[in-house]
Design a protein around this nucleic acid. Sequence first.
DNA 1: AATATATATCTTAGTCGCTAAGAGATTTAG
DNA 2: CTAAATCTCTTAGCGACTAAGATATATATT
Lengths: 155, 155
Amino acid sequence: MRRSSAQGVLYGQTVANVAGIANSDLECMDILYLEGRVSAGRLAEVTGLTTGAITGVVDRLEKAGLVRRERDEKDRRKVFISVVPETAMKIGQLYVPMQQAMEKVFGAYSDEELRLLLRFAVEGYKGVLAATEALKGLLDTPPEKRPNLKLKKLR
Amino acid sequence: MRRSSAQGVLYGQTVANVAGIANSDLECMDILYLEGRVSAGRLAEVTGLTTGAITGVVDRLEKAGLVRRERDEKDRRKVFISVVPETAMKIGQLYVPMQQAMEKVFGAYSDEELRLLLRFAVEGYKGVLAATEALKGLLDTPPEKRPNLKLKKLR
DNA sequence: AATATATATCTTAGTCGCTAAGAGATTTAG
DNA sequence: CTAAATCTCTTAGCGACTAAGATATATATT
């Protein structure tokens, strides 16, 4: 599964490269697909980038016609980002090979087996989230018991 | 699963950040763990970086004491990279939360269910590889039928 | 109402890893 | 025994990122 994950990252890099956008830009497109309309700050949160970096990401994506900025009328400090479906579709096409490959993989399982895989996917995601929390904890609490590499402070 | 994968990438970024090395550096450490002793060129191949970038990666990792360069005595152009286990272990410790979380997830399944998950992992990896191939094919064969974003040529 | 504090995004300067191109060293082919 | 191929490293320049602070708007305090 680690290998699949690594290979999946490579796939994404190729897509970004071909589409002529940066990796982070594509990552943000992905989030926008998954979460829909999202504020700039939330993008920073989810990607782990600074808000300054997100400004750059959205600038590039907007110039490429892939997303739109929309000021929130309720809270005029906020900027919502939303994908422009017609343009974003072109990038989506580059994922067709991946989708087909996955359909083929999943097609080999019975409904009951798929239920197990779904359960695993959900539980696995919870696990990764828990691990992320635990890592943060590991970094906050124990002072000097960690690998004494030169630690850079965490954002 | 896409979400898990994205979150896993974030986890890795945090690890790299804390360890004071670049993302690509950590990715290479990962590959070195999985594949053992590997040539600089192979690292470039697997990561999708240029050989020049790999030189930088290995320079930094070597300076941090995480890997060693070894010239191949059979073919003296080649440079093999291998991890220094004692030092690399310190980074490995940062993956303990992830390992524990995964053990917990997998612990909830019977042997038979685990066999299914293993089968899925193997087939899934094959699928991702196939998709990568298909993507390359998609880029080579049809000339102008692709998303007409400004295409950067592929490495 | 007026001021202070907090929040959300953007701006700027500087840093760092990456690519492209080519150099150096070694191996393989003709 | 020269020529071409292969592998790594070097160099110059570029572009995305961070850190810090500026700007604009919202919320809390008096």
